[in-house]
Design a protein around this nucleic acid. Structure first.
Lengths: 201, 201
DNA sequence: CGAGATCATAGACAGTGTGTCCAGAAACAG
DNA sequence: CTGTTTCTGGACACACTGTCTATGATCTCG
């Protein structure tokens, strides 16, 4: 049985994950074969199929582990009562992305037919929608636009900037500065859109 | 010679283009084989390769024809002296997208390894950057953020909303209303970012 | 109408990658 | 050392690719 969850297994899976990510970044998802992956991971081809059904399964594995982690951290950041609309969630996403930039690059570039990107956008726009909704309710104001559209637009913006930032040549522009920009854009645009402008006077 | 540019040839290419687009929307790019395409287009397999080197070549053909057309129209809209920053370019993209929604859906979803989406974003963000730059210069103001980032963010927003709109169930929200929202968001966010706010008082 | 050009077609071909299976080697825990 | 689990290379049938050839279909223009 897998009572012990053999270390070997963990190491193999890890090697395969890393191999996939770096190869995909190098040549693009479609151009990477299972052979390439096992070669890079220094693993037998047969072994691959004992761990994952597919190249796609491995890809999904990478995506979901990244996203699970991110969601947990966002939940923490958003736990406090009126945490919405501050820059914290945005900053947290940026921080998380720097910890595993390659996986993020792969996902946000839409590699692997874009499933990963879509998953990311869905998760993030759901969060965004919740933030907007909570804030609108808390301040008893009427949104001027569909909050769903607003969330989509917001996430599209975030993703674009995050990707730009990840792909920027070293040394990268300071995280805090970029985050600040995004937050400030939200102030002027999003706050208005939700009929709530904390900066108004 | 192809002096006459035989009508047959045009029809065949058109049929292949349409077949690709609809099949990709149905099953995703990777799951579509050349066999599928020629079957849907009611064309022999050998014929395919006399017109296109590849499935990729056909895909690129679709993308570039869509983009060429769009760029021309944008150029017209932007021709007038101070056309920048009005809602016209945005509206034009939306209009163009309704004329060939399937091709746009395919491209914006990032099908085909995302090359099409990247081409679209590059073209559009270049335009956006020009608009911002021109406006900043015309009003002799100092931008508060990197205009490149601003353009990226803006385009990310546009793409997200455009895709949301294209995928919305019929009857779709009125184009004009969505466009208006995007333009208004630009007012509050982008105008501020470029240090130029026509609505300020 | 008929000759000449152009385009479309079916079928065969080797090449590459896939996913499955097996029997044996290697690594590990107790 | 023993038994369990994981890893391994090699073999297999299968699917899709891209190229080629010989033949048939369709159009143009005199």
């Amino acid at each position: 049985m897998t009572v012990v969850e053999d270390r070997r297994s963990r190491r193999t899976r890890g090697a395969l994950r890393d191999a996939l990510v770096s190869l995909v970044l190098e040549r693009g998802y479609a151009a990477v074969t299972v052979e390439d992956i096992v070669a890079a991971a220094d693993v037998g081809r047969a072994t691959f199929y004992t761990h994952f059904k597919d190249k796609e399964a491995l890809y999904d594995h990478v995506v979901s582990s990244v996203l699970l982690d991110l969601k947990e951290r966002l939940a923490e950041v958003l736990a406090p009562e009126d945490a919405g609309f501050t820059g914290e969630p945005v900053a947290e996403v940026f921080r998380h992305a720097t910890e595993q930039p390659d996986a993020y690059r792969m996902i946000l570039r839409g590699e692997g037919d874009g499933r990963g990107l879509r998953a990311f956008e869905d998760a993030w726009s759901t969060t965004a929608h919740e933030i907007f909704t909570a804030r609108v309710k808390a301040h008893a104001v009427r949104p001027r636009v569909d909050l769903q559209v607003l969330a989509r637009a917001w996430v599209g913006e975030q993703v674009a900037v995050l990707l730009w930032w990840l792909d920027a040549p070293e040394p990268r522009p300071a995280t805090d500065q970029v985050v600040e920009t995004l937050v400030e854009l939200s102030r002027r645009g999003r706050f208005w859109a939700t009929g709530f402008d904390p900066g108004a006077r």
